[in-house]
Write a protein that binds this DNA or RNA. Structure first.
Length: 263
DNA sequence: AAGAATGTCAACCGCGTAAGA
DNA sequence: CTCTTACGCGGTTGACATTCT
């Protein structure tokens, strides 16, 4: 019974690849390709590895066109959009992202993107339910372009429908109670628009945002832009105005402290 | 400063399926 | 047509890194 293993476990090395192994695999594949047979390839390349392991190492790490980390807002939007349509078809999703592997996309979704979406939905829900302050305050900036922000906002709710979007009523808050980028604190209306795009490449707006006392430290690899995200998320989620003073161009800011009463 | 908790990501496992004998 | 084999994929694990207490 059971499936014949693709290789003898005791005879192959497992675990992390050494630089020497990487070099042996890389040079062999670049010279000969996989030869159409990953199972026999390790032997030919002088590697004591399972063929599957070699294939995985090449596809996920050694291929010259691979990009690691630093997912852009546009990639976030593509992943979110395709995930909502296809589910966990990581290879399909990855095929739409140049230089990304299914493993990379899967890891990125499971460790970061999904949590951001959950946090976004949870933050919205928690404000109205006075949850403890230990709840993550905001998602890291997933969207520095209007399209990406809109996609993120739309799917944050649609992917996690169990988390209700709160009703928000007018109360008086100070700017310090909200997630407002430094640029907005200084001159909200002059700073509106454009700042998020600049932040996406880690330039001035990102550092300005991260320097704001109440701003999330988790700007992530995509840079700042929480402001843009929050604006669009709240607007896209149909939230009402929390405070007229914080109704800025493009949408509304959301309270930093989940214990604040908005309802 | 140290231990615990949490996050990240490379690698492995096993199933479904395509291709070839 | 059936069986075998290898590939490709998605889920899961575990080691290491980072952050928190």
């Amino acid at each position: 019974m059971g499936r014949t293993p693709c290789c003898e476990r005791a005879a192959v090395k497992r675990g992390p690849w050494s630089p020497e192994e990487d070099e042996a695999l890389r040079s062999y594949v670049q010279r000969h390709g996989s030869g159409g047979n990953w199972i026999s390839m390790p032997k030919k390349a002088g590697l004591k590895r399972c063929g599957k392991s070699c294939r995985l190492r090449w596809l996920n790490y050694l291929r010259p066109d691979i990009r690691h980390g630093g997912f852009t807002d546009e990639e976030d939007a593509v992943i979110i959009s395709l995930y909502s349509q296809l589910g966990s078809k990581w290879s399909l999703i990855a095929s739409q992202l140049e230089g990304r592997t299914d493993n990379d996309v899967k890891n990125y979704w499971n460790t970061k993107l999904k949590k951001r979406l959950l946090a976004a939905a949870a933050t919205a829900g928690n404000v109205s339910t006075r949850s403890p302050p230990s709840v993550p305050r905001l998602p890291a900036a997933p969207a520095s372009t209007p399209a990406a922000a809109a996609t993120f906002a739309t799917h944050a709710s649609s992917l996690f429908p169990s988390l209700a979007i709160p009703t928000v009523k007018t109360e008086m808050y100070t700017c310090d109670d909200f997630l407002v980028p430094a640029a907005f604190r200084d001159d909200p209306f002059a700073a509106a628009g454009g700042s998020a795009d600049a932040a996406a490449d880690g330039s001035t707006s990102a550092s300005a945002a991260s320097s704001a006392s109440n701003w999330s430290a988790d700007n992530g690899a995509v840079g700042g832009g929480e402001g843009s995200f929050l604006l669009d998320f709240c607007a896209g989620s149909g939230l009402g105005a929390a405070d007229d003073h914080l109704q800025l161009p493009g949408g509304y800011y959301y309270p930093l402290d989940p214990s604040l009463s908005l309802v």
